[in-house]
């Protein structure tokens, strides 16, 4: 019986920790390091979905690029009921990448054709009752 109680307590603690740690800087840093591979860290951003308002389903962010530089954009969204779709637009707002057809893809590598702001857009699934506060996050790396 003691064993059973301990197991249950550990399981609950672990579940609680997982839910909480989804948008912590520690977990995002770890995922950034792993996901960037040989790319060098440029910047990152992360926020719990609740910070955008409860009904937001389209989230956008801009990031700077320099002409002829090699970049990796890494989606680090965590805790959603489905894999998050992300789209990347160039400086002229042309869609240059979408993981819509294969949502298992979480990064995109490219060489910028001109300097300016690119946009990353996340289409997030409706909120999951089991995990009411997932994390929207991304990181940029360069070579």
């Amino acid at each position: 019986m003691k064993k059973l109680l301990l197991t249950i307590a550990f399981a609950i603690a672990a579940l609680s920790q997982t839910a909480y740690s989804q948008c912590s800087d520690r977990s995002i840093k770890k995922l950034t390091k792993e996901g960037l591979g040989t790319f060098i860290f440029e910047s990152a951003a992360f926020k719990p979905l609740s910070a955008f308002g409860n009904k937001k389903s389209l989230i956008e962010a801009a990031f700077s690029v320099y002409s002829q530089e090699h970049y990796r954009v890494l989606s680090l969204c965590q805790g959603f009921s489905d894999v998050v779709e992300f789209n990347i637009y160039d400086t002229d707002r042309n869609l240059i990448f979408s993981n819509k057809s294969d949502k298992s893809v979480t990064h995109y590598d490219f060489i910028a054709q001109k300097s300016g702001d690119f946009t990353i857009e996340f289409r997030v699934p409706s909120q999951d009752v089991k995990n009411p506060n997932p994390c929207v996050a991304f990181a940029i790396g360069y070579k």
Binding site: A51, E60, A61
Partner: peptide, 28 residues
């Protein structure tokens, strides 16, 4: 996050951004 968002809202005018705008790395 809300503080960050509020700061972010201060900084954007024409274009609505959900995250605080990121700047390039000085090292880069």
């Amino acid at each position: 996050a809300m503080d960050t968002l509020a700061a972010g809202n201060l900084e954007t005018d024409a274009q609505v951004q959900d995250f605080v705008q990121s700047l390039p790395s000085p090292i880069h």
